[in-house]
């Protein structure tokens, strides 16, 4: 008995002394870190832009899954109209836009603008998402397809008019990167196809390349700018005079709890890509043909984000079994 006890004690003492150095962590937090490897997850970059628009152009942001984004946009007349036009504020162009996030990377939407009395529907997909962690991706890339129909009276009611003449199509590719917490930038290439153009010399397909950026000064306030270069000689119609110009806009984003306000100065009266490079962008900055305007964005939760995630997780568990 004594011998057994002695042996046990010696053995356990031996074990204790050999193991103690390994166990003696200076800090239990270090032990925690060495015990758990941080789970390898994909960390998607969030809040590249405050909202779904850079200024007038779309940003790569889409509403989160289950959320509806309601946007009201106003563009006023030209500031060089002076006091008589109250610096353009007498006239207002308006657009309403509803966009719904089916998933975090796919949305559908529709809108109506009084410019050209145009209805439009669109869908867009982020096919690359900037991320760190398990999957490293330096950029977010997104494709947009949009169809618009004008609903005004025919310009030329005497001739035979086709309903298809009211339609125009937009395809856009956007690539964006959030460089730092404050600085994000985006480049985009856009193609607009108009079924009906003013004259034979006008091309049906119009192309533009653009860039936009935002710089946050505080968490809720940031400066924005955006430029679209119109590939020349595609809009030649003399009737489209004054000449359609490249679009340049500057503005700022102001975020309150559930709203994002975007205030801008632009030579572009258009509020969708269908309108930019038609007669809507005729103002010239240097001549003071500047429109003031704003977007108000409001998000509504339609479907419960968390519940959807739980369901997704449950489906995954059913399919693949638990993670460990």
């Amino acid at each position: 008995m004594l011998r057994l006890l002695l042996t046990c004690s010696l053995l356990s003492t031996f074990i204790m002394f050999t193991y103690v150095p390994a166990m003696a962590q200076d800090d239990l937090l270090d032990l925690l870190d060495s015990t758990v490897d941080d789970p390898e997850t994909i960390d998607y970059t969030f809040a590249t832009f405050k909202t779904t628009r850079v200024i007038t152009s779309r940003s790569i942001e889409t509403p989160a899954a289950g959320e509806m984004q309601f946007l009201i946009a106003h563009r006023f007349g030209r500031v060089n109209g002076g006091w008589r036009d109250f610096f353009g504020l007498d006239q207002a162009n308006i657009r309403m836009d509803f966009e719904y996030g089916i998933t975090d990377f796919w949305s559908v939407g529709w809108g109506r603008s009084n410019v050209f009395k145009q209805w439009d529907g669109y869908t867009r997909v982020k096919f690359l998402r900037q991320s760190t962690g398990k999957r490293k991706m330096p950029i977010t890339a997104e494709a947009l397809a949009s169809v618009a129909m004008t609903s005004g009276n025919w310009v030329n009611p005497d001739r035979r008019n086709y309903i298809s003449s009211r339609a125009s199509y937009v395809f856009q590719l956007m690539v964006a990167r959030k460089f730092t917490r404050n600085l994000s930038a985006q480049i985009m290439g856009t193609m607009l196809h108009k079924n009906l153009v003013t004259s034979r010399q006008d091309k049906n397909d119009i192309f533009m390349v653009g860039a936009g950026a935002r710089y946050l000064l505080t968490g809720s306030f940031g400066l924005t700018m955006e430029y679209h270069y119109l590939i020349p000689d595609r809009i030649v119609s003399p009737i489209d005079a004054p000449k359609t110009d490249h679009s340049f806009s500057i503005g700022f984003d102001l975020e309150t709890g559930g709203h994002v306000f975007q205030i801008m100065a632009t030579n572009n009266l258009g509020m969708t890509e269908h309108q930019y490079f038609t007669s809507a962008t005729t103002g010239q900055w240097l001549k003071g043909d500047i429109h003031l305007g704003f977007n108000v964005n409001r998000v509504f939760t339609i479907a419960d984000y968390e519940k959807m995630k739980q369901k997704k997780e449950a489906r995954r568990l059913k399919k693949e079994g638990p993670k460990d």
Partner: peptide, 22 residues
């Protein structure tokens, strides 16, 4: 000891979650 990852907090509204993190 406890260690919590801020990004793992789930909110009812995605916008709240974004503001919380950002």
């Amino acid at each position: 000891v406890f260690k919590m990852l801020i990004k793992t907090f789930q909110f009812e509204k995605a916008l709240m979650q974004e503001h919380f993190n950002e």
